[in-house]
Amino acid sequence: MFVDHDTILNTAGSHEEVTRVTKPYGQVLRKAVNVTTADDAEKWVDLLRAVRDRQDQTAFAELFAHFAPRVKAFLIRSGMEPAQAEECTQEVMAALWTKAHLFDPARASVSTWVYTIARNRRIDVARRNRRPEPEDLPWGPQAEPDQEDVLLLQQESENLGRAIATLPEKQRDLIAKAFYGDLSHSEIAEITGLPLGTIKSRIRLALDRLRHALA
């Protein structure tokens, strides 16, 4: 089986893309898991849009290959049994498809969105009830957010990822522990110095535009 990338990728061609197009599917998956490029965040957005607009199963398979093993690892690290984590991963990944129309790339990267779905599923399973969620902001008159906003937010998400990766190990471990559910609220209060100012401003801007469009 070969992947036809012309139909699922809008991002500029790269050497990885050439590799993927010319190699069998199994190798594509391994490659996709290991490669991190500056365009990745935007690539995931394009693939998710292909799922939303065309029910593109090939695009979904690529998202699945990248995110399913990460979601499963997150659930296991959060204390779930592997068998249940596998089942839960399927539910999380299925939500990627069924909720694709709710994803707003001006406010979150696909990684962040997948994380929130996995986290909420984990809470629902543990408590057997739903986590209180803020009310949604309705879409404005435009069906799509401004492309420039999307681009900047996606780039900012990658910058944040890199910034976290280069934090001192002790601080990074503490943050990871917090998100795997190993720290209490008062222990989390000790975590300082996360570089969140820029991404917060980007999200705030997207919210302001949404409010303005609705007014």
């Binding site: 898991v33 995110f67 399913a68 093993p69 990460r70 979601v71 499963k72 690892a73 997150f74 296991i76 690290r77 592997p82 984590a85 596998e86 991963t89 979150a108 990267s109 990684s111 962040t112 969105w113 997948v114 994380y115 929130t116 996995a118 986290r119 998400s157 944040l160 990822g161 976290i164 990766a165 943050i175 990871a176 998100f179 996360l194 969140l196 991404i199």
Partner: peptide, 15 residues
């Protein structure tokens, strides 16, 4: 987004 960054960088478990 921090959670998303950790998921992206974090470990993988074979499905």
């Amino acid at each position: 987004a921090v959670g998303g960054g950790l998921l992206e960088e974090g470990p993988v478990a074979a499905v």
